[in-house]
Write a protein that binds this DNA or RNA. Sequence first.
DNA 1: CTCACTGCAAACTATTTGCATCGTA
DNA 2: TACGATGCAAATAGTTTGCAGTGAG
Lengths: 144, 144
Amino acid sequence: MTRLELVRKFRQHGYKITPQRRAILGVIAGPISHPTAEEIYELVRERMPDTSLATVYNTLRELVTIGEAYELILDCGVRRYELTGTKHAHLVCLQCGRIQDLFVNWAELESLLCPQDGFRPVRYDVTIYGYCADCASPPEGGLC
Amino acid sequence: MTRLELVRKFRQHGYKITPQRRAILGVIAGPISHPTAEEIYELVRERMPDTSLATVYNTLRELVTIGEAYELILDCGVRRYELTGTKHAHLVCLQCGRIQDLFVNWAELESLLCPQDGFRPVRYDVTIYGYCADCASPPEGGLC
DNA sequence: CTCACTGCAAACTATTTGCATCGTA
DNA sequence: TACGATGCAAATAGTTTGCAGTGAG
């Protein structure tokens, strides 16, 4: 999903497009993955120094509302955002905090997780905490 | 895991057992499932009115530290606690907020989620958001 | 030209911490 | 008796809200 596509989605839902929103959408459509609101704020301010954190939060909330983004809440309580797209699981490194996407056979996963008692699933959240290749052994400390 | 077993675990780790901790452990070992810190606090105060919320938070943190409890953070940001035990997934109702445990073939799940790139998994968090049997159709509003 | 969006600062909520006192081991 | 645990209140962190001014459509 490019920035322009996100802008179009925003307009479709009756939201106005301001320079601030354009910049925010540009950041989340960009290369940094799973940013926090604060990280988006810092990056946006490099190009739009007059943007407020409140506007970042508002725009993120709207993105989530129109179904174009997910808000991930990690074990440590940190909230991170990512665009809605291909279904995948998350690998969270307990040492460096990095998040990787793990693409799996989602249909098989859903069939395995099928609830029996009338529960109607809407969204699956699968997160694996552990240590990434670069942090192979669990040293003291840890980011999360 | 009964309250007495939790008390024993606490002692094993060098923690002292106070009446407040005994009451808190009694509540999380009791019938209410996946309580919040606040819910535990209210229940504890029915029997120990001189317990502070800070003590509840401290005790919960210690339980998590010694590996006897998990802290679940839901989509809406609410933190809930449950004792470590059999591995299971969680079903969270978007309408009433109720959480149910879903027992699945965990070995199969782990093999399906096996990361390829040197990531060493420690803990799997599988949560399914949807609507429970009692809230079958998604009305407006929603608790989370 | 209108009203949604903005920045700023204040408000809020959930959790943590500092400190003098208490009570378990 | 010693020192870990406690209650209280203040501090903190992250997010939301109120409001008057601004600018997109």
